[in-house]
Nucleic acid binder design. Structure first.
Lengths: 153, 153
DNA sequence: TGATTGTGCGTGTTATAACACGTAATGTTC
DNA sequence: GAACATTACGTGTTATAACACGCACAATCA
């Protein structure tokens, strides 16, 4: 089933570029939705999950608000309140950096780490479910092509 | 620059599947943001633009709310109010289907068509800017791989 | 050291997303 | 043909996204 049939569009795409553009969007919408559904019973959104994983990578050192936003998959213009929510649910804690009081360092809590551990299986299963049909070589090809697109700008 | 460096993650990805998953998300975030920025001066969002293009494809016949949602790139749980906004700005009009009064047929207006005409150049330029670095063969490969992923579920 | 610029974060506000529920029209079954 | 189910849309509400603005702290320079 190609994308044209899938979205029931009568006229063919204007170009392969356009078809690729929409293909990426539609594919991500599917994957993102599947991830959100998997996370929902655990009470976190895909954005929150992304931030938590970033903070797990930073260990005890913690990261500032701006460092986190730079590493997020999608642009987050309101990271302050995203971190507010994570702090309110006890998954992270925050503390002014004594060395430079402009920064607020966020660190993942034990509870946050426990949640991520609990979710790691589900995530891996999700990745396999959706991407398992693509060989490792093809995955490399896909990853490479997408990287080239991101560089293009 | 690979994705690992880009999001400054210390530890390598757990799997190629994970890297591909995140690559798709990050690439779409970039493309979607570029599209939104292009559209902003014209007063429409990417979602609204998507709906307008679907309605242009349907010509004078029009489409019902549910038919539109089925064809959207991303899932839209609140199409009623999306169409409200398009109607309020005069880009579409709506009318109860006399044959089956449960349906409300939306049709693109002359003003809506004019806006799309105005935007077609910008869209094409955008596609070329971001995807022009990829050969037609590679675009086919990319399109095919993404289609396989969408079928997988 | 006082003024100026830059950096990082928080807040106020509006618009949209997401979900649950309600209502109207049509189909179906006995 | 009356009750029930189904389909399609609308509405109420909460949460989040997006943007603009402002404040606190730090660095720089006169």
């Amino acid at each position: 089933m190609n994308l044209r049939d899938e979205i029931q569009q009568r006229r063919p795409f204007q170009s392969r570029e356009q078809e690729a553009f929409l293909s990426i969007g539609r594919t991500w919408a599917l994957l993102d939705h599947a991830l959100s559904e998997m996370l929902k019973p655990h009470g976190v959104t895909a954005t929150q999950y992304n931030a938590l994983r970033i903070l797990r990578g930073a260990k005890d050192v913690g990261l500032s608000r701006s460092e986190i936003t730079e590493r997020m998959v999608a642009r987050v213009p309101d990271a302050t309140r995203l971190l507010d929510r994570l702090e309110r649910t006890g998954l992270i804690d925050r503390q002014r950096d004594p060395a430079d009081r402009r920064f607020v360092k966020a660190r993942i809590t034990g509870q946050g780490l426990a949640l991520l551990d609990e979710l790691d299986d589900g995530t891996q299963t999700l990745h396999r479910e959706h991407l398992g049909c693509v060989s490792q070589e093809d995955l490399d090809t896909l990853i490479g092509l997408l990287a080239r697109i991101r560089e293009a700008v």
